[in-house]
């Protein structure tokens, strides 16, 4: 019975961590699928979102708004700024580089990330910031033997909603199907009359907004400080790559694998928790060299 309880705890922790992983990587996955670039600036967007949320939640709380309004305000501000920054980056940087090798774009996004790192520091200072008010206000709930913050469990719901929303948009709207077509074959889509450039701009905008949103949703859980974006990049990469790059289902599977790997090691083998994520990534790639949900590609002779 105790063993079962322990197991349940591990699963709950794993799922809740997986939900967070999915939220931070869904934007990256989308951008990779359409633009074929690993967007390192995603970590920067995450950090910006977290700082914006801290500001928004603080401002809303100071004006007497409740937890719901605080979160809404934070999310809105983060999404709006994320979309704006996304457009800005796409127009000024990425658009000029699409004809060059992908690795060049990768480093352009790395440069953007470095700029964001210091920009957030210069704007908000070196010390940590907090946005824990809404998380505290939502209270705790008992699951089995342990209590969990409602906010953390709500993140699982948010992750599922996000996954459903993105999948539905991709599969059942006109624009979503255009995006799917571009993911599958850029040139063919262009010749079918899809405005590939606009799709790419739009996707990057949405990806950036999802990045800031992820930061905003995480803000109430953490200390928002200099350098929080670095770890997020590698984690999001791991999730995206394990899933096979560019598919929402893959990202979900990747998030669950990495989440469970971390929960299991944190509980049972804390000494190796440090590299659980990389071990999971190496093992999955060793077994499935193209990730879990890879599309077969035509061989060009």
């Amino acid at each position: 019975m105790q063993l079962l309880g322990h197991l349940a705890t591990i699963v709950i922790d794993g799922v809740s961590y997986a939900a967070w992983l999915f939220i931070i990587s869904v934007g990256l996955t989308l951008v990779f699928g359409v633009l074929r670039i690993l967007n390192i600036a995603h970590g920067g967007m995450y950090a910006v979102g977290a700082y914006l949320a801290a500001y928004a939640i603080g401002a809303a709380a100071a004006n007497g708004f409740g937890a719901g309004a605080q979160l809404l305000f934070a999310a809105t501000l983060a999404v709006a700024c994320g979309a704006g920054l996304g457009i800005l980056i796409e127009w000024t940087v990425l658009r000029r580089l699409y004809r060059y090798p992908e690795v060049l774009v990768l480093f352009a996004t790395y440069a953007v990330f470095l700029i964001f790192e210091d920009a957030t520091k210069l704007l908000w200072g070196g010390q940590s910031r907090y946005a824990n008010a809404p998380r505290d206000a939502l209270g705790q709930i008992r699951l089995g033997e342990l209590i969990y913050p409602v906010y953390d469990l709500a993140m699982v719901l948010v992750a599922i909603l996000l996954a459903v929303a993105v999948s539905l948009t991709l599969s059942s709207t006109r624009i979503g199907r255009c995006v799917t077509a571009v993911v599958f074959d850029r040139e063919m889509s262009a010749s079918m009359g899809i405005n590939v450039n606009r799709i790419m701009t739009g996707t990057f905008l949405v990806g950036a907004a999802l990045g800031t949103l992820a930061g905003a949703l995480t803000a109430p859980k953490i200390a928002i400080s200099s350098g929080i974006g670095v770890d997020v990049i590698v984690l999001a990469f791991a999730v995206t790559v394990i899933g096979g790059l560019g598919s929402i289902g893959g990202a979900m599977a990747g998030a669950v694998i990495v989440g469970m790997a971390r929960a299991v090691t944190a509980h049972l083998f804390p000494q190796i928790e440090l590299f659980a994520v990389y071990a999971a990534m190496a093992v999955v790639l060793a077994v499935r060299p193209q990730g879990l949900f890879a599309r077969p590609e035509a061989r060009k002779i």
């Binding site: 953007v112 700029i115 210091d118 920009a119 520091k121």
Partner: peptide, 8 residues
């Protein structure tokens, strides 16, 4: 204070 930004 901003060497990363300059480098970037």
């Amino acid at each position: 204070d901003a060497w990363q930004m300059v480098l970037g």
